[in-house]
Amino acid sequence: MSDRILGGASVVLAIFFIWAATQIELSFLSDPVGPKTFPIIIGVMVGVAGLVIMLRPDPEPQWPALGRILEIVAAVVVMVAYAELLPEIGFVIATAIAAAFLSWRLGAGPIQAVIAGIAISVGIYVIFHLILGLSLARGPFGF
């Protein structure tokens, strides 16, 4: 079933991609092929591959239980929040929180996770910012 959905999604994606390719505006510069042709070829490729996958699916992969999928979703949410908050609260604090969360979800106890988060964050900060001079996001406290 998963493969049928994958194949179907690929076909939809391919149709959308080809449609979007036909919408590309042409400029006064041009060459015999133009900016549309290659994307359309790719779209056809994806579409055909999607059809084949839909018609001849592989055995079903082992999907994780719902709880685990939710955990992955949670990890994604934390990462996006991390990216958004990075300029606001600075590298060290944001990284410590994100790393602690991931470490906790990968099986560390709460206290272990907090320590790991701080260690990872400060470690990266010291090595990459203080020693190697890489510029990391600065927060309100300057780090």
Partner: peptide, 29 residues
């Protein structure tokens, strides 16, 4: 599964198409 390899290649190539076309200067996707 060859079909999946083709799909993968197509996905990658399609992603590469995003952005301003280097030869004519028009934005794509």
């Amino acid at each position: 599964n060859q079909a999946k390899a083709v799909l993968a290649a197509g996905l990658g190539l399609g992603i590469a198409m995003i952005g301003v076309d280097g030869q004519t200067g028009v934005p794509r996707f």
